[in-house]
Amino acid sequence: PLMDAASEEAALRALPVAALDLPPETETALRRAGLNSVGDIARRPSAPLTARFGAQATWRLARLLGRVDSRITPRRAPPALLFSHPFAEPIGRMEHVMGVLGELAQRAATELEARGLGGRSFEARFYRSDGETRTVRIETGAPVRDPAVVMRLFALRIEALADPLDPGFGFDLVRLAVPQAEPFSQAQGGLDREEQGEDLGALVDRLSMRFGRARFRRLVPRDTHIPERAVAAVPALAAAPESWAAPEPEEPPQRPLYLFRPPLPIEVLAEVPDGPPLRFRWRGGTHDVAAQEGPERIGEEWWRDISRPETPRDYYRVEDKGGRRFWIFRHGIHEGGRAPPLWYLHGLFS
Rank of each mutant, 00 (worst) to 15 (best):
E113V: 07
M151Y: 07
V97M: 01
S129D: 14
A148R: 15
P164S: 06
H96L: 15
L117E: 14
H96C: 09
E123L: 12
E103V: 13
A160K: 06
S129C: 15
E95V: 08
E103S: 13
E111Q: 13
G102L: 00
R128A: 07
D172A: 09
R152V: 02
L173S: 11
Y127A: 05
G102K: 05
E123A: 10
A160L: 07
A148E: 12
M151E: 06
L117S: 12
E139L: 04
H96N: 13
V136L: 08
S129N: 14
G102H: 11
R137H: 08
S121Y: 00
E159R: 04
A114Q: 15
L117F: 14
G118W: 02
A124D: 02
A124S: 05
V174S: 05
P143E: 06
P147R: 13
H96D: 15
R152Q: 13
R107P: 04
D172N: 15
L173Q: 15
R145T: 03
R107I: 04
P164G: 06
V97G: 00
R115Y: 11
P164I: 01
L153H: 05
T133H: 10
G119F: 03
V149T: 13
R115N: 08
L101I: 05
D130Q: 10
E111P: 05
G168T: 08
R145Q: 10
L165R: 07
V97Q: 06
M151T: 08
P167H: 11
Y127P: 06
A124W: 00
D172K: 05
L161M: 15
T133Q: 13
L173A: 11
V149M: 07
A109Y: 04
D172V: 11
R128L: 11
F171Q: 03
E95H: 12
G102I: 02
L161E: 14
D130V: 02
R134F: 09
A148M: 10
P164L: 04
F122W: 11
L156A: 12
F122Y: 14
A148C: 10
F126Q: 03
L156K: 04
G170V: 02
L156E: 08
T140I: 03
L112C: 13
I158C: 03
E159T: 06
G170K: 04
V144W: 04
V136Q: 02
T140F: 07
R120F: 02
T110F: 09
R152E: 15
F122N: 06
V174W: 08
V97Y: 00
M98S: 06
R125S: 09
L161Q: 12
E123H: 12
L101W: 01
I138K: 00
F122C: 09
P143V: 04
V100Y: 01
R115M: 15
F171D: 01
